[in-house]
Measured scan of single mutants.
Amino acid sequence: VTLFVALYDYEARTEDDLSAHKGEKFQILNSSEGDWWEARSLTTGETGYIPSNYVAPV
């Protein structure tokens, strides 16, 4: 399991995006899409895309 933590708040801009709150942890499901990674929030269980530069490894 690849875990990352949000460094900043991010507000989803499309229905495919996933909002993130600073300190929230995510499981990365797919990081092969360049700057946008598919992730699952460990807080809400929701999945979507987050900007890779907004997260760091735990």
Rank of each mutant, 00 (worst) to 15 (best):
residue 9 D to N: 08
residue 19 S to E: 06
residue 56 A to N: 04
residue 43 T to Q: 09
residue 6 A to Y: 01
residue 51 P to G: 04
residue 17 D to A: 14
residue 22 K to H: 05
residue 29 L to K: 05
residue 46 E to R: 14
residue 2 T to Q: 13
residue 21 H to I: 12
residue 37 W to S: 02
residue 32 S to W: 09
residue 25 K to A: 07
residue 1 V to W: 14
residue 1 V to H: 13
residue 39 A to F: 15
residue 32 S to N: 11
residue 30 N to H: 07
residue 18 L to R: 00
residue 4 F to A: 09
residue 57 P to E: 08
residue 56 A to L: 07
residue 40 R to T: 14
residue 51 P to Y: 08
residue 24 E to F: 03
residue 51 P to E: 03
residue 27 Q to E: 14
residue 38 E to Q: 11
residue 18 L to E: 00
residue 23 G to F: 04
residue 25 K to M: 15
residue 39 A to L: 10
residue 35 D to C: 13
residue 29 L to A: 05
residue 13 R to K: 11
residue 31 S to M: 15
residue 2 T to P: 12
residue 6 A to H: 01
residue 10 Y to Q: 00
residue 48 G to N: 01
residue 3 L to F: 11
residue 38 E to S: 06
residue 54 Y to S: 13
residue 56 A to F: 09
residue 15 E to K: 13
residue 6 A to Q: 02
residue 43 T to C: 12
residue 44 T to H: 02
residue 54 Y to P: 00
residue 4 F to M: 08
residue 49 Y to W: 15
residue 30 N to K: 07
residue 54 Y to I: 15
residue 47 T to L: 06
residue 16 D to P: 03
residue 24 E to P: 01
residue 52 S to Y: 08
residue 2 T to W: 13
residue 17 D to W: 08
residue 11 E to K: 10
residue 55 V to W: 03
residue 47 T to E: 08
residue 17 D to R: 13
residue 20 A to E: 02
residue 47 T to S: 09
residue 10 Y to G: 00
residue 7 L to R: 01
residue 1 V to A: 12
residue 20 A to K: 00
residue 55 V to Q: 00
residue 11 E to I: 13
residue 15 E to D: 12
residue 9 D to G: 04
residue 8 Y to E: 08
residue 20 A to N: 01
residue 52 S to T: 07
residue 49 Y to T: 06
residue 19 S to R: 07
residue 20 A to F: 15
residue 17 D to P: 00
residue 26 F to D: 01
residue 36 W to S: 07
residue 18 L to D: 00
residue 29 L to H: 03
residue 21 H to F: 15
residue 10 Y to M: 04
residue 48 G to L: 04
residue 16 D to L: 14
residue 37 W to P: 00
residue 16 D to E: 12
residue 2 T to L: 13
residue 25 K to L: 15
residue 22 K to S: 05
residue 49 Y to N: 07
residue 10 Y to W: 15
residue 26 F to W: 04
residue 1 V to F: 14
residue 54 Y to Q: 07
residue 47 T to K: 09
residue 6 A to N: 00
residue 42 L to S: 03
residue 54 Y to K: 08
residue 53 N to Y: 13
residue 17 D to S: 13
residue 2 T to E: 11
residue 57 P to N: 04
residue 32 S to H: 11
residue 6 A to C: 09
residue 31 S to P: 10
residue 37 W to E: 03
residue 15 E to G: 13
residue 51 P to I: 03
residue 1 V to T: 12
residue 38 E to W: 15
residue 20 A to I: 15
residue 13 R to H: 10
residue 29 L to Y: 06
residue 23 G to P: 00
residue 37 W to Y: 10
residue 37 W to D: 03
residue 54 Y to F: 12
residue 49 Y to I: 08
residue 36 W to F: 13
residue 35 D to W: 08
residue 21 H to R: 14
residue 39 A to E: 03
residue 9 D to F: 05
residue 21 H to Y: 14
residue 9 D to H: 06
residue 36 W to M: 14
residue 39 A to W: 04
residue 43 T to N: 08
residue 9 D to S: 06
residue 53 N to V: 10
residue 8 Y to V: 07
